[in-house]
Design a binder for these strands. Structure first.
Lengths: 200, 200
DNA sequence: ACCTGAACACCGTTCAAGT
DNA sequence: ACCTGAACACCGTTCAAGT
């Protein structure tokens, strides 16, 4: 049974979750599929092309919120769903960052969010700036979140002592990631409205 | 004449500016200094240790703004200076991201900014959250800025057409990076105040 | 104290050749 | 259409040995 783009992507995601992006070598993917690394180049032009396919697959699981509700809630729900996808697969952030969002599902997400941003009242000329700001927020938040979750407790306490010689404020602050993520979103939306590139 | 940690870092920065982080291999650094790659391991425990030293060196050029002016201006000037350092050396962002900020100059910057954030009125329990938000903003902004500047014009126009079938709004929006950077900072500060984790 | 040679265990990618 | 063997040009890191 011949492999396909789909089975290669599937195997890649399996390896990502097991070994992280460090372990995602062409040879490792090939081994997972019982073929040789060179064969992968018949399906993909190179590693970045494969990253693009992985990212596209991840984004295909994106659950579009209901159109009906008000556009601001829609945006918050969109970004929550975006984060959920990023959290579902280990090291998804560098995969997304190193691939161009020119595939159907990724463009669909971008378009849906762009439309909602315009509905909320952001000026069209600021659309790219605003969506970049929000996109970077989500990506860097999740990257930090994963780094934190993959750091052993003693290392964290070591770092804590450096930044805050008193006591462990850091841990208390960073424990609830859902709440922290929502907090950041509130900050960004409030800020964007206040700086009145918003029409209303 | 034997090399030292300093000359190794110097050579590394030279290579970064010339070839980017892809070109910064242990062998390339050694060649630049007319030694062999294995020798570097007498000075540094590994590549991440070297990244830490490069980051520390870059941060030593940080120009602390005057203490006297009001704390909010101080913060804006701090983040501008931070961005200036990141822009001064190619691919500095991944170097910073992959090293632990436990060296003197980096801690100095973190402490100075923390103090200013508290002065502005942010609650101590939110200090880490707020400074992470701002730090991530600067890093991801500069990463995008560099990506944009290193992308040939025809590639950019190709992408533009994908996101905005009408015309080239993107280019107009992203031309002035200084202004864009300040815009993002204004958004974040306005948002942080509005979400009233700010005491005043 | 500082450096090297040689090796180990890897990478991504190419390409003629196989079926 | 799909895969392989073999090679090319690299990596980071270790370690006994040299001066």
């Amino acid at each position: 049974m011949a492999v396909s783009k789909e089975t290669i992507v599937e195997a890649s995601i399996k390896i990502l979750n097991r070994d992280g992006i460090e372990g995602l070598s062409m040879r490792a993917i090939a081994k997972e599929l019982n073929i040789k690394a060179a064969s992968l180049y018949w399906h993909f032009s190179g590693k970045l092309d494969l990253y693009g396919a992985i990212a596209e697959c991840l984004c295909s699981y994106y659950e579009m919120p209901e159109e009906s509700c008000n556009p601001k809630d829609y945006l918050v729900l969109s970004y929550r769903a975006y984060r959920a996808i990023l959290l579902s697969t280990r090291d998804s952030v560098p995969v997304l960052e190193n691939s161009i969002p020119n595939t159907p599902h990724r463009l669909e997400i971008i378009n849906a969010i762009s439309k909602a941003l315009l509905k909320v009242g952001f000026k069209e000329e600021n659309l790219m700036t605003v969506s970049n700001l929000l996109n970077n927020y989500v990506l860097s938040f999740v990257a930090d979140e994963c780094r934190f979750k993959n750091t052993p407790l003693d290392k964290i306490q070591e770092l804590e002592k450096m930044f805050n010689p008193q006591d462990s404020l850091l841990l208390r602050a960073t424990n609830d990631f859902d709440e922290q993520f929502s907090f950041g979103l509130r900050v960004l939306f409030a800020g964007l409205e206040a700086v009145d590139i918003c029409a209303r």
